[in-house]
Amino acid sequence: MRPVWIDTDAGFDDLAAILTVLARPDIAVDGISLVAGNTPLDGVVRNACRMKAFFGWRAPLHAGRDRPLLGPLVTAQDVLGEDGMRTAGRSLPDEQAPLDGRNALAAMAAWLERSEAATVLALGPLTNLAALLLARPDLAARIGEVMWMGGSADRGNHTAAAEFNAFVDPEAVAVVLGSGVPFRMVGLDACRQVPVRLADAAALRACGTPRALLLADLLEGYVRIASPDGSRPMALYDPVAAAALLDAQAVRFDPMHVAVELAGTHTRGMTVCEWRIPRKAEANARVAVQADADRVRGRVLAALAGKEPSQ
């Protein structure tokens, strides 16, 4: 079993990514840490506890940081809604599984202490991981890879220059990059190559199971973020990073040097990707440059439907 830790701010695309990972029988999700991002931390905790109760997850949930390393929290509630999960009908039931008593940093540290070449799938701001590496830099050597959905080698989404997860806590991005841990970045430019549409929600709904009906309504609500009438496709963000973790053929990565802007008036949170390696800089990351849309979407939609992926 390949051990994986998931760090998340518990929106719909986070849920889809987690279900995609859990669909693989050779992956052991040893823990899920929660971080403020899509909503304040109490909303993230509520969503994650409802997810665990409905889907019967076994991995313990650990509450983490409720704010960035520096400055106030910025959320995506203006886009995603008050609870961070838009829907066309059904929502997660109110029943909540309990949190684990240990906080996220203590739980992650304990996991890394007994792990070697550990994999972290990060689906939100990197605050928890950065705080851990600042407190316990000795644990960096225990991390075999961080796979992060965040950043962009092109334009942003929260601002013209910055992707949301990077904008929320750019200092955390800088800490993780500076730690020397092996780092793969799945940014907006790769995720935008994998669109989902209302037809995907309709196909999921046709499965007819309670799980599929709930996820179809959440997927439709997610698609309608791009356009209220559903006429435009929506990029599938976090699940692209999950697919890249599971399938070496799903996403192509190139070595780059990634730096994050911390001070620019218009560019704070921008991830600057230098691709002229090694002439201009030494690589400190591998950045997603091309996604196989059919391969990724097929794997994710199969996981949502509770089926085995075709690849």
Rank of each mutant, 00 (worst) to 15 (best):
A244E: 08
V168I: 15
V196W: 07
K280W: 11
R24T: 12
A293P: 13
R58W: 04
Q77M: 13
G64N: 04
D169A: 08
A48N: 04
L219G: 01
G56N: 11
V186Q: 06
A190N: 02
R67T: 05
S310T: 13
P233R: 02
T159L: 07
L70P: 08
T127K: 10
T209D: 10
M234P: 00
A104L: 00
L105W: 02
M234F: 01
L213M: 12
A216E: 03
G180Q: 03
S231R: 15
D200K: 11
G124K: 00
D238L: 00
G81A: 13
A202C: 12
A162S: 14
G101M: 06
A63T: 02
E95I: 13
R184C: 01
A23Q: 09
A76T: 05
S152M: 10
R58C: 09
D100P: 01
V168A: 06
L123T: 07
A263N: 12
A166Q: 01
M270V: 02
D14T: 12
G124S: 15
N38Q: 07
M85K: 00
G56L: 11
P170L: 13
D247T: 06
A161R: 04
G89H: 04
M108A: 08
D294H: 12
E113S: 12
D189I: 03
A36Y: 05
D254E: 15
K52N: 05
D26R: 10
V175A: 09
A17H: 04
A160L: 14
L80F: 14
F12Q: 09
V240T: 15
P255L: 05
S152V: 14
F253V: 12
W275K: 14
A248I: 10
A97M: 07
T20A: 13
T271A: 11
A131H: 03
A122I: 07
V21S: 00
E145V: 13
L215S: 01
P125G: 09
A202T: 12
E113R: 14
G269H: 11
M85Q: 04
P195V: 07
V181T: 01
V29S: 08
G56K: 05
V194F: 03
G89R: 13
G101E: 11
R224E: 02
V287M: 01
A36K: 00
T39I: 04
L121N: 01
G269S: 11
G84E: 09
E113I: 03
T20N: 03
A48K: 06
P137A: 12
W57A: 15
D238T: 13
R224G: 06
R299V: 00
V251Q: 04
D229E: 12
C191R: 09
A172Y: 09
A106F: 02
E261I: 07
S231A: 15
G156T: 10
P228V: 13
V186A: 00
R252C: 02
P137V: 09
D78V: 01
K280A: 15
G230S: 07
D217M: 06
C207P: 00
S115Y: 11
G64K: 01
L213K: 10
A104G: 05
A16S: 09
R279M: 10
A109P: 01
C191M: 14
H266Y: 08
P233V: 10
L236V: 03
R24N: 11
G11M: 02
A76H: 00
A104D: 02
D83N: 14
G43W: 05
K52P: 02
L19C: 09
A302E: 03
T267I: 05
